[in-house]
Amino acid sequence: MNFSILIFLFVAVLTTFAALVVVTNKNLVSAAMWLIVALFGAALTFVLLEATYIAVVQVVVYIGAIAVLIVFTIMLTRRSAEKEPSGATKQWPIAAVLSLALFSGLTYFYLTVPGTDRLAPVLDKELNMVSALGQLLVSPSGYVLPFELASVLLLAALIGSIVVAWRK
């Protein structure tokens, strides 16, 4: 199992480094490229956790759609994507304090809440996780209401984006 820990350490360092570059890089498109590296690192972490469906979804949605959307947005809003903004805004101390608070909160949560050091139960090898997820999504005792609500939410997003972005 040492090998997988080694891989995890590599992935974790890569993801953190990429995320750091995203917030410090002044070139917006470069930052977007590094964001993709960070998102891919997150997907790799999911693979290491054997949450393969989530890993693939991470790539399809975040890299396939959201990253493209972000790059499009940069091209759309900035006539010259290479013209660098003046760097960090004056709000960076607030952001630093907030993220530090979030980090310490999560660490505190991890250390105090019981059960975080317990290993996850071994899953039944025969269990098809994706099929089980599908059954849960549409069963009335499961998540059918959130499932349909997600559809309505997506519809609202669709209509909203057209109303905002589309001018005749």
């Binding site: 469906y53 693939v56 399809v60 890299i63 994507a81």
Partner: peptide
């Protein structure tokens, strides 16, 4: 023979889109 094979194909395909965007920009 992973149990998310079809979605894996879709996911890998999205890197091709990215490559085009990178090349053009």
């Amino acid at each position: 023979d992973v149990n998310v094979g079809v979605l894996y194909i879709v996911a890998i395909g999205s890197f091709g889109i990215l490559a085009i965007l990178m090349a053009g920009w």
